[in-house]
Simulated assay, not measured.
Amino acid sequence: MSVPVVHLVVGTRPEAIKMAPLAIELRRAGLLRPVLVATGQHPAMVGQALAAFGYVPDAVCRLERASGEQAELVAQLAPKLDTVLARGSAAVVAQGDTTSALVGGLVAFWRRLPLVHLEAGLRSGDLAAPFPEEANRRLLGVLADLHLAPTRRAVRALLAEGVPAERIMLVGNTVVDAALRVAAGARPPRDPRLVEVDREVGAGRARLMLVTAHRRESWGPPLDRILAAVDAIVRARGDVRCVLPAHPNPAVREQVERALAGTPRTVVTDPLPYPELCYQLARAALVLSDSGGIQEEAPSFGVPVLVLREVTERMEAVQAGWARLVGSDTDRLVAEALGVLDGATRRPAAGNPFGDGRAGARGAQAIAALLGLAPAPELFEPDRPVMSTAS
């Protein structure tokens, strides 16, 4: 008998990172054959992210994008993805809340294929923030046959929307699996500037502050305020070294380099490959970020995060004490950062509320159970998370 195929739809770097642990566990179990489908939304970044796990896409949707608009992406991707799924599929997995995930869910629904939503149930309650992701994930919540929820908060959100409890599985977040796996094998950086930072941090002569500000909501004036705070923090504490992987958008990169041109002990880089980002994260004393993924990854390494957003759908990190929601106000950012660096802000004793490194295995078994090939998995217990020993 042939092994049933499950299509895993990935369009962006975060999707690839969070889908890889599921692909690993599906292949390990052997009950289903995972097929990684790259949608062409961010092809280079997807390829780079999958390479960190030793994977390449099994199928590629080649798009000819000109405007970069959402309508163009949907119009081109839907028929190409439909062609891939028409070859035969037992189920489709869409991760998170991107346009690729939404199109994957819609095409699966149109073909009457079982749809699995990985990282289901995140909600900000505001359709404008994050935009358009909040709408995308709510729509996927309507379409999905199986909701792989990362946290109890996500489970409660799905139940409040009327999703039957038997269609929800609390598995944890696969990004924790990914970060722990990659960080364990990550090598020191090769960029001479980062080598110098790493040497200083490793010798205990410096503390690393990692900064990522990639979301469109942060561009323009908010980013100016964030960069002003970065400059003030570094100048206020002489042992702080800052690493800032900049967004590849030329205008954003120029804005970053202009604002930090005179800032001492600060390195602006291209976007870092995932293993290098995990390496930096594991060694950081503090992170300033608007990234959802970093909010989920940092607690595994015991690193506090100042969230550069007004709202977050990952309140578990805030409630556990690992993250503080500070927005982009310069004065508040500086005050909060210095509070963490000076020890005035108490760090939690518990581990990561988002996962224990076994979400991929639970998710793989839950999909097999959906298709009648295995019993349901044991669920994630957020009260007993695990913290990495990486340093």
Rank of each mutant, 00 (worst) to 15 (best):
R138D: 15
Q76K: 09
V116F: 03
L260V: 00
V6W: 08
L102V: 12
A75C: 11
V234K: 00
E257C: 13
G104M: 10
L26Q: 10
P130H: 05
P353H: 11
E313H: 08
R62D: 14
P221H: 13
R65E: 13
R332K: 12
V307Q: 02
L373R: 09
L36V: 09
E276Y: 02
R138I: 00
E72V: 08
A251W: 05
E297V: 14
R384F: 14
T151H: 11
V171F: 07
R152I: 04
P221G: 04
L159C: 08
A369Q: 08
P34C: 10
G105V: 11
P34V: 09
A101D: 07
P4H: 10
G351C: 13
G96S: 02
A298T: 06
C61T: 07
L272N: 04
T330M: 05
V74R: 03
R156F: 02
K80Q: 14
P271Y: 05
P245K: 15
A129Q: 15
A90M: 05
D126S: 12
V334M: 03
V197T: 07
M1A: 06
L277F: 06
V256H: 03
V171C: 06
R215S: 02
L281P: 00
V318D: 15
D224G: 07
G11K: 04
G355L: 06
A160W: 12
A165D: 15
K18L: 08
T151R: 07
A66Q: 15
V386I: 06
G202T: 05
G220P: 00
T98P: 00
R347W: 08
F380L: 03
L210M: 03
R190H: 13
L286D: 09
E133G: 12
M45D: 12
T174P: 07
P275S: 05
V307M: 10
G30E: 07
H214G: 06
